[in-house]
Structure formats: structure tokens, C-alpha cells
Design a protein around this nucleic acid. Structure first.
Lengths: 102, 102
DNA sequence: TTGACAATATCGACAGTCGATATTAATATA
DNA sequence: TATATTAATATCGACTGTCGATATTGTCAA
């Protein structure tokens, strides 16, 4: 049986989904990721468009409209759930590192 | 030019290094990762031994002693710095997800 | 129509993950 | 001493995701 997809989100995935809490087209997502991460993270086109396809196939994201090749995306409820779960996981992982302080 | 190694640590890497804040051999690391993560994370041998080699080559970890094939490892100061940096990154990424709450 | 541009899509090389399996070494037992 | 058992490490191949370079597609202005 196929392993559950997107068990833990990678950093690019996380910021792509965060960007898609508002409708955005591809290039806007790249800009938005930079904005949300205050310049720390940048996602290249190879990663982005491959991921958008995978996310779309898995109903994590959906296409809202398209003009020619240009497409707009937004996160789905399922995607939001994944994002929330991932955020909690980040918190737990951060907490598990507390033994560094000792 | 080679890209800087270990820019962001993956979840397995993070817990392996956390386990190595005390001297451990391979199988003990696997057990320790489970313990630290309260059962949430488990690292298989394929991931572990490949990573230990890479970490060792990059002075993230060092071998303290060996008996036959069995080796003990511990984190280096460089490894500790990486772990601290990664922990801060996790916190930042968590914070960047705050816009989900709005 | 053509040229420039904006946006999306694809490509190949690479890093890391994973469980299954192989190898190695120490120990127990006949 | 041989041999079986066990514990631990090491390797393998398939797979997912990343990345920047490049190709493709579509739009608009001249």
C-alpha cells in the first residue's frame, strides 16, 4: 500500500501552501513566499511547478481559473488541515530540542 | 562551487544529532530518537548509517571509540551550532505560519 | 507578422529516505 | 576448535523532493 503522502511538509511545501491561503498564480507564489519568510526562503520554478501539479493531483490545492497557460491556485480545506498539522509538528520538534538548553 | 551542506536539517537529521548530545552507538541512536520524540519519529538503518558517514565526513559528529564494527559517536561543537541554528529556524517557520490563525 | 516579454513546464543531476538484505564480528555451544 | 547464533553495521535500489537552466507557450505592442 502506498505510503501516506505529505506526512511531513518540507520547507518549500510549507511556504507554498502558506502563500496559497490567498489565490495566487505561479509567479505570485514565488514572490509571496519571499515576502512571508522575510526573504529567507525562495522557491525556484522547478520546485514550484512540480509541487503545484502534485498538490493539485492530491487535492491539497485547486485551480481557481486560468488564462492560457497562466493558472491561479488556492489551498483546499485538506491543504489547510495539512498546514495546521505541520505547524503543530514544527512546534513539537522545536520543543523536543529543549534538551539542548540543559 | 559546492552548496553549503546541511542548510536546513531534515527531521531525521535533527533527531539523530539530538540523540548524539550523548555518546551513542548506532542502534542506541535509533532507540534514543524514538525516546526523544516520544515515539513519533523512527529512523531506519538505511538513513542512519548513511547519515552518520556524511556527518562524520563533515565534522558534524565524531567517532569516540570502536570495537570491531561497532562504533560510538558524539556530536561536535560544529554539530551543536547546526542544531541550535536549526532549532531557531523551526521557531521562525512556526511563527511565519501565524497568518493561519487570522 | 514579428519580436519581446511574461509565465509555465520540463529536464537532469543531486540529496536524502526507507526497508530489505548483506556483511561483519563477537559470543555461546558442541 | 569448529560452528551456529546473535547483534550491529553497511549496502542496495526505488523513490520523493530540490534546484537552476532551459524550453515552451501565450500575449501584447510595434
Amino acid at each position: 500500500m502506498a505510503r501516506e503522502a505529505f506526512q511531513t511538509l518540507t520547507e518549500p511545501m510549507y511556504y507554498i501552501l502558506l502563500a496559497l491561503t490567498q489565490e495566487q498564480c505561479g509567479v505570485d507564489i514565488m514572490a509571496k513566499v519571499k515576502e512571508i519568510s522575510k526573504g529567507r526562503v525562495s522557491v525556484g520554478p522547478g520546485t514550484l511547478y512540480a509541487m503545484l501539479q502534485k498538490f493539485n493531483e492530491n487535492s491539497v490545492v485547486k485551480i481557481t481559473r486560468s488564462e492560457g497557460a497562466k493558472k491561479w491556485y488556492i489551498i483546499t480545506p485538506r491543504g489547510r488541515d495539512m498546514l495546521t498539522a505541520e505547524r503543530e509538528r514544527l512546534w513539537v520538534q522545536y520543543q523536543d530540542g529543549e534538551l539542548l538548553e540543559q
